[in-house]
Simulated assay, not measured.
Amino acid sequence: MEHNETQGEARDRDPQGRARSSRPRDGLGRPLPYGSPGVERQPEGVLRTPEETVRDAQRLLDAGLPFHAHEVFEDAWKSGPESERGLWRSLAQLAVGLTHAARGNATGGARLLRRGAAVLADWTPRHPYSLDLPGLTSWARELADLVEEAPHALDAASCAPRLRGR
């Protein structure tokens, strides 16, 4: 990743020349000043099996890193079969909803949690990859209600869902 100066502005570029921020990020994906210690980002475009996707995302959720879990789900949604894109996208929305709730953005968090839950509800009869879709749908709706009732930043690790239930 290169850090380039263009017309007085700093522009980060990947090796292909596309704009990509190389700024370090905190555990909730917020950019930090250059040179600050940050949380290692998930590499983009990783091809994982569905089993690896669920395992890696759960590990990140348990560690209180829902932004990073969203990146794992995003890889699955962008690289997986068209027929499963809605599933992985809705799981990414749940992770981003938790990210926003942990950042203290109750409105954005609740909206994304509900949007992801609505799509997951359609997948529930299928139970793909042993995911606990009824449990995740309930978790998302309950957390959305909670953050709207008491809008404050919450601890992402203690609120993390179990993708395959308890």
Rank of each mutant, 00 (worst) to 15 (best):
P15F: 04
L146I: 02
E142G: 06
T124V: 15
G165W: 05
L47D: 14
P43T: 12
Q16A: 13
A118L: 06
R85F: 00
P31E: 15
P134S: 04
W139G: 03
A117G: 10
Y34M: 06
L146Y: 12
A95I: 03
S79D: 08
A157M: 10
A102K: 06
L87E: 03
G38K: 07
S138D: 08
T49I: 05
L120M: 08
L28C: 04
A92G: 14
L154I: 15
G108T: 07
E148G: 05
M1N: 09
R126N: 04
Y34D: 14
A106W: 02
L136C: 08
Q16W: 06
A10K: 05
R114Q: 15
E52R: 11
G64W: 14
H68E: 14
R13E: 15
V39M: 12
A144C: 03
S22N: 15
W88N: 00
G38C: 08
P50M: 01
G8H: 12
R20P: 02
S90N: 04
E82M: 10
L28N: 09
A150C: 00
P37Q: 11
G104K: 11
L146F: 15
H127V: 12
G45R: 11
A140M: 03
L47E: 15
G35I: 01
A95W: 03
R162V: 05
D132S: 03
E40I: 12
N105T: 11
T49R: 08
A110W: 03
A150P: 00
G17L: 05
T49Q: 11
R41K: 15
G27L: 13
V39F: 12
R20E: 15
R89Q: 15
L98I: 02
G108M: 04
R111E: 15
G45N: 13
G104H: 02
L65A: 08
L136K: 00
P15C: 05
S83N: 09
G38T: 06
E5R: 14
P15L: 08
F67V: 01
L91A: 04
V39C: 12
E149S: 14
L61H: 01
K78C: 02
V96I: 13
D26I: 06
D155T: 07
G35S: 09
F73T: 08
R48Y: 09
Q58W: 05
E5F: 04
L113T: 09
A140D: 07
L131E: 01
T137Q: 15
E84P: 00
R126D: 11
G80A: 01
